[in-house]
Write a protein that binds this DNA or RNA. Structure first.
Lengths: 209, 209
DNA sequence: ATTTTTGCACTGACCAGTCAGTTTAAAAAT
DNA sequence: ATTTTTAAACTGACTGGTCAGTGCAAAAAT
């Protein structure tokens, strides 16, 4: 298991330990919440000594904050990639929105525990990691807002839409539908769920279809 | 003795105390989460001794469960009323959906803390009140599903829509948009937010408008 | 040789739940 | 009317347990 360090000083062993801790923490916190999850549990599930947690992270809160940043970083990158790919392929803004819906679903499909945890913490106030959460939320929502704004500028969307609120509503639509999917109809395919949301997104609900 | 408890107003001493405890608990738990909120805090904010909490509720969890039931009961009643009123006035199913969106917004406007708390707990697993939450969620979503199903039967909605998933998506849309409203643009009026969501609901996003 | 991990004992703060005793107010007795 | 009785409602100090974080010497990995 030798992994030569192409990058500077950063040790690979340490990184692997941190990754194990992220994975252990994310599922436990998703299930139980931050306060109800103990550091001993996290260490045990990660197969690591408690001292190692504190060797790698300053505190339980810091571990959680870095976990949040890590996870949302993945989501944001994925959304951005979807929007850019669509644009490069000459798709419309609606196509871009649709591609982002799918990217969101793929993310939630792959990291359901992280999504649960994120939703559970997002609207809390008076918490230590409040500011981290705000920053990280804004990065993700901003990608959606960007596409909406471009669409309005290009005359593709009505200039009467409320960009900020509409972005929030779209994110909510995907988030809640996907969590419902995972919780109550896990046997359904991603394509299936995507198709249902596309229909809603494009207003193809009314009418006999 | 004979506490004349049947006075329909429900204004026995005990009932008043329980109400105070609900109000104290809902804001604290919304801010901090269940585990991070102590019974001492709840008692203090309610202006009551800790023992009183345990005189009125079997445990901290039971207090929370009854709080959940209480709150979702209000929401469900409100959604149902909105749907029925619209039908009685001869409105279409889209009108009913729209009225329910507004009822949801009104509820969140009035009980923002409850909404926060509800969303934060809804998708958690392995929690004591899991089953309570499921039941209570289903009651609320079922109202939306009912309207969608009627609409499909009446040919008002496409028979290709996925009722369950669409209902979840609609609930999510309103929930997330409203929490965003309260968190980041609290100065906006309810009508304003409602208008933005109506537009999205009716697919009036694409096009120059 | 240095970084990282382990194992484990320890501390001090914190907290859910208990319980013996006190207050409240309505009913019964005088 | 006034006093006495009763049961429900409430109080708050106390207990037993839990948990984040520490300290450190030895071991393992690089």
């Amino acid at each position: 298991m030798e992994r030569s360090s192409a990058t500077s000083g950063g040790s690979t062993r340490r990184e692997a330990t941190r990754q194990k801790l992220y994975e252990a923490a994310v599922t436990l916190i998703a299930e139980q919440g931050f306060s109800a999850t103990t550091v001993d549990e996290i260490a045990e599930r990660a197969g690591v000594a408690k001292g190692t947690v504190y060797y790698n992270f300053a505190s339980k809160s810091v571990l959680f904050e870095e976990l949040l940043r890590h996870g949302v970083g993945l989501l944001t990158a994925s959304l951005r990639e979807a929007a850019e790919r669509t644009a490069a392929e000459g798709g419309s803004r609606v196509d871009a929105l649709d591609a982002m819906v799918r990217a969101g679903l793929v993310f939630i499909d792959r990291y359901p525990a992280f999504t649960q945890l994120y939703v559970a913490e997002l609207w809390r106030t008076n918490r230590a990691w409040q500011s981290t959460l705000m920053v990280v939320r804004q990065e993700a929502v901003a990608v959606v807002e960007g596409v909406l704004r471009e669409g309005v500028a290009a005359g593709e969307f009505s200039d009467e839409i409320d960009v900020q609120l509409t972005a929030a509503a779209l994110v909510g639509m995907v988030l809640v539908a996907a969590l419902d999917w995972k919780s109550f109809q896990p046997e359904r395919s991603l394509d299936d769920v995507h198709a249902a949301l596309s229909r809603l997104l494009q207003g193809r609900v009314s009418g006999k279809g």
